[in-house]
Amino acid sequence: MPLPEHPEKIANLSSEELEGLDEVIYVRPDTGASFSLNLTAAAVLDLCDGKRSRTDIAGIIAGGTGGGTDMTRVCDDVDTILKQFVDCGLIRAAD
């Protein structure tokens, strides 16, 4: 399945940041399946609002990591994360 250009987090996804773990656990409302994401992946998921493009998301993540970031690499990393979100059913295409 190709990556959506404007990814959108599925509705009613519940989440919990468990103290001291530096990870966020998400639970899909339809299946009850749970997924653990590190804080960077969780930030990417939060940015998936159906309006931002993948490039927008990569730009925001790169901005958060400070100057001198290789944008091509950040875009690739974000796409890798988004691919996993698609496989887990955490995002859908808004477009």
């Binding site: 519940s14 989440s15 468990l18 990870e23 656990i25 639970v27 749970s34 653990s36």
Partner: peptide
Amino acid sequence: SQALMELAEEMHHKLPVL
């Protein structure tokens, strides 16, 4: 975190997953 997710499936009480 992985263990917690797996253990959540192995509880005898009917509680929401989170």
